[in-house]
Structure formats: structure tokens, C-alpha cells
């Protein structure tokens, strides 16, 4: 199967939709039934729709599926399962890092990519220096996760869950 007019989602190739208006988010939810990814605002403002494309986190509501020919998309379903959760998924459970849970898949996809960004030494607006090792301090995590809004305000526990995984120590 060639990658022409196909997008790979969690390791499986899928044809692109015929209607170019379909956002990547709608393709995931409506066309493929991957409803883990959530639609909050549909305007890039809340982060509920965060997925990783070629390893980089983006808002799937503000991109067209047809623009992702040949790309590799990872959604919350691709990160872990109920039996074998990822470290962040487990930490969110352990820390009760949600109330309604609507923002959670986006939070976890976003945090997964964020830890990679810190490991790669990418600075943020909260970084004192633009160079050198980036530390997953509370201030850094808050700034780097600011694109994921939690309407229930579970931020304290979200921060604790991410901090635990980032530091490798129970928070």
C-alpha cells in the first residue's frame, strides 16, 4: 500500500476523506470512531483535540485531514490501553488528575510531547535562559501546558501527575 492519499494513525494507514473540509479532528472522531480525541472549542483555544503528528503536538481541530498525506498521527488510543497504560496515563489515574475527564486525552497527549520537548532542550516563555538544560519545574510545566485548558480546574493534580513522570519520583 503506498502512502499516497493516506495518513497513518496509531500505526494503521487510512485513506484521506473526500471532503477537504474535514478537519483531522473530525476524521478521527467521525470517520474512524477514535473518540478519545475531544472537541472542546474547535478553534485552537482549549487543547482538548491535541494529537501528535510526526511526533509533534498540534491542535487537530485547526488542520485539514487532506493536508496530512503521508503523516504519522498518534492519538490517546495509540499511547496505551486500560491494561497497559503509559506512564502519564497511570500517573493521571494515581493523582486523580481530572474531574469530568473531557480535557484528559488532550492533556496526556500534550504532556507526552512536552516531556520530549524538555528533553530536547526546547525553551519556553518561562525559561530564564534560552540555552542549556531545561528543567521540568512547576513554572515550566504550567507555561508549557497552557494550551490545555481544564474547565474543571484539576490543574493542581494535573501538575502533580506530570511532575511525577517528569522527575521519575512520586510527587
Amino acid at each position: 500500500m503506498s502512502s499516497e492519499n493516506r495518513v497513518t494513525i496509531n500505526g494503521e494507514a487510512h485513506p484521506l476523506p473526500d471532503d477537504p473540509r474535514v478537519s483531522l479532528l473530525d476524521m478521527l472522531r467521525h470517520n474512524l470512531g477514535l473518540t478519545g480525541t475531544k472537541k472542546g472549542c474547535d478553534h485552537g483555544q482549549c487543547g482538548a483535540c491535541t494529537v501528535m503528528v510526526n511526533g509533534v503536538r498540534i491542535n487537530s481541530c485547526l488542520t485539514l485531514a487532506v493536508m496530512h498525506d503521508g503523516d504519522e498521527v498518534t492519538t490517546i488510543e495509540g499511547l496505551g490501553t486500560a491494561e497497559e497504560p503509559s506512564a502519564l496515563q497511570q500517573a493521571f489515574v494515581d493523582h486523580d488528575a481530572y474531574q469530568c475527564g473531557y480535557c484528559t486525552p488532550g492533556q496526556i497527549c500534550s504532556a507526552t510531547a512536552m516531556l520530549e520537548e524538555i528533553a530536547n532542550g526546547w525553551p519556553s516563555d518561562a525559561s530564564e535562559n534560552l540555552d542549556g538544560t531545561m528543567k521540568p519545574s512547576a513554572e515550566e510545566i504550567r507555561e508549557r501546558m497552557s494550551g490545555n485548558i481544564c474547565r474543571c480546574g484539576a490543574y493542581a493534580n494535573i501538575l502533580a501527575a506530570i511532575t511525577e513522570v517528569a522527575s521519575g519520583e512520586p510527587a
Binding site: 485552537g44 503536538r57 485547526l62 512536552m114 525553551p123 516563555d125 534560552l130
Partner: peptide, 19 residues
């Protein structure tokens, strides 16, 4: 050009800046 890096990092969110 730190003023440029800083200005970009002060805008939007990581998800948006990635696109």
C-alpha cells in the same frame, strides 16, 4: 536573535507554534 525567540515563545501555545 533572542528577541525573536522570546517574541515567538510569548505567543500562542506550543501546539499552535508547532503548526
Amino acid at each position: 536573535y533572542p528577541v525573536l525567540a522570546r517574541a515567538i515563545l510569548a505567543g500562542a501555545t506550543q501546539q499552535l507554534r508547532n503548526r
